[in-house]
């Protein structure tokens, strides 16, 4: 039985890892090796120069900066807004509260492709196409993040808030100094998920950018591959650049990811 289980898990792990290792190998091959009739699995001499060549063939430096600005900006916005809105729905009573909450949760059912065409028209009308604003603003907050924060803030005792009010703290101060510090584990989950998913986002940056200089890595890399179809060693090098940050982030914080998926089924 034990052997069978190890066999199953081992096979699944091999199917997962081998293609990714091949991607790394490919990124270090010469162009001739990528095409040779005898498939090369380990390059003769690692071609680190492939990574440099990538930057001369395409504005790869721009891609990296764009990805960092867009994914980083959206992550910061989520960390700023999601807990604030979650706090309001967790701890305040006000007119239309339930209506607004349902209206918020309903947006979780709206897939991105529904917003894609009208957002494109909106950005075109505002002359925002091909700008960071266009790439960032449609994703400033979302129902999943707000719901996660609300669930996390709800069990915090109301007495803490009352005590702070009696001490004369302002409402903003209460949120910032009493509530926010207690939500750190949830903020970590929220920040990691948001960053990784936005780093990987494909459809909207494809639609909303019009020049190579504004593309993010996933889009820039895919269109690079369409243009230089045979240069697989360079495409692989770009894939490694796209892959490494999320892989490293994940290895160091995998517990948060696993807990985050298990708790909320994010995405």
């Amino acid at each position: 039985m034990r052997v069978l289980l190890y066999g199953l898990l081992g096979l699944a792990s091999l199917i997962t890892v081998v293609p990714l290792l091949y991607m790394v190998s490919l990124s270090l091959q010469t162009e001739a090796e990528t095409l040779s009739a005898n498939a090369v699995l380990v390059p003769d001499a690692p071609q680190w120069g492939n990574y440099a060549e990538l930057f001369t063939r395409a504005p790869f430096g721009n891609f990296i900066v764009n990805s960092l600005v867009v994914a980083g900006g959206i992550t910061l916005a989520h960390l700023l807004f999601d807990p604030l809105v979650g706090y309001v729905f967790a701890k305040f009573r006000f007119p239309l509260r339930n209506t607004l909450f349902v209206a918020l949760l309903a947006t979780a059912m709206v897939p991105f492709f529904v917003r894609m065409i009208p957002l494109y028209v909106l950005m075109a009308n505002m002359q925002w196409l091909n700008t960071y604003q266009a790439l960032i603003t449609p994703f400033l907050m979302d129902a999943f993040g707000i719901f996660l924060m609300r669930q996390f803030i709800q069990p915090i005792p109301d007495d803490l808030i009352h005590a702070a009010r009696i001490d004369g703290a302002s409402e903003l101060r209460i949120y910032w100094s009493v509530i926010l510090p207690q939500t750190r584990p949830a903020l970590a989950v929220l920040g990691l998920f948001t960053f990784v998913f936005q780093w990987n986002e494909f459809l909207w940056p494809l639609v909303a950018t019009t020049t190579p200089e504004m593309r993010t890595i996933p889009v820039g890399l895919t269109l690079f591959n369409q243009e230089y179809f045979t240069l697989w060693h360079l495409t692989a090098a770009g894939s490694v650049i796209l892959f490494v940050p999320t892989a490293v982030l994940f290895l160091f914080t995998q517990r948060y990811f696993v807990r985050g998926i298990a708790l909320t089924g994010l995405r």
């Binding site: 997962t16 780093w199 494909f202 996933p218 892959f243």
Partner: peptide
């Protein structure tokens, strides 16, 4: 790991 990888990769 593949779940946290871009569809582009």
């Amino acid at each position: 790991v593949p779940y946290l990888t871009s569809v582009a990769i």
